[in-house]
């Protein structure tokens, strides 16, 4: 069973969207929760597949929930709340995504809910920051899971941004890579 990569993405987005600052490329330490809507492009490069799986849409973050809306190639609405993750495909009924489909344990057991609240300290209960590079063009933060359970699935999570989070790249332990770019390209 692999970790809910998308959920990791959503969580980290929520945490790092706060890195918007008055000056160019401020320290990510000043992150605060950010409400609002962002466009995204998710690219899953999965081993053994002919091509990357690309989806686009918008993500909306509020105090109570994160709504991850894929509009291409199909309409998929995923709602992430404290009580669980719910999904509707192609306008169908919303159904919960249970543990088997991924999600809930990773909300309650990995501190990702804290991250979604913009609590970077909460994230660091579960992840070690391997590196923090600052440059003129922005910052790169690399996180590695602390627990063996999580590290057996996730290798690293890399966040890139400047005034805002621009790219999340997740390297899974099996070699799969998932990246999410925010903003219009």
């Amino acid at each position: 069973m692999k970790p809910p990569t998308g959920l990791v993405l959503a969580s980290v987005i929520a945490a790092t969207q706060v890195a918007v600052a008055e000056t160019s490329c401020p320290s990510p330490e000043t992150m605060k929760p950010l409400a609002g809507e962002q466009t995204f492009t998710q690219t899953r490069t999965l081993s053994g597949l002919d091509r990357p799986l690309v989806s686009t849409g918008t993500v909306t973050i509020s105090d109570d929930e994160v709504i991850w809306l894929v509009t291409d190639p199909v309409d998929i609405a995923t709602r992430i709340t404290e009580s669980g993750i719910y999904q509707s495909v192609a306008g169908g009924d919303e159904t919960p995504l249970h543990a088997g489909g991924g999600g809930n344990p990773f909300l309650t057991e990995t501190g990702l809910l804290s991250i979604m609240r913009g609590d970077l300290e909460g994230a660091e209960d579960h992840y070690d920051r391997a590196s923090s590079d600052m440059s003129e063009s922005g910052w790169d933060l690399v996180f590695i899971p602390k627990s063996e359970a999580l590290s057996s699935h996730l290798k690293t999570i890399t966040l890139n941004g400047c005034t805002a989070l621009e790219l999340i790249t997740i390297h899974q332990s099996n070699g799969d890579v998932v990246s999410v770019a925010f903003g219009d390209e």
Partner: peptide, 21 residues
């Protein structure tokens, strides 16, 4: 089928290349 599509392109599902193939 719909659920599989939702999990592959959506968020919150631990889909890997090994599993999907």
């Amino acid at each position: 089928w719909n659920s599989a599509v939702g999990q592959v392109f959506g968020v919150g599902t631990p889909v890997s290349g090994d599993i999907l193939r």
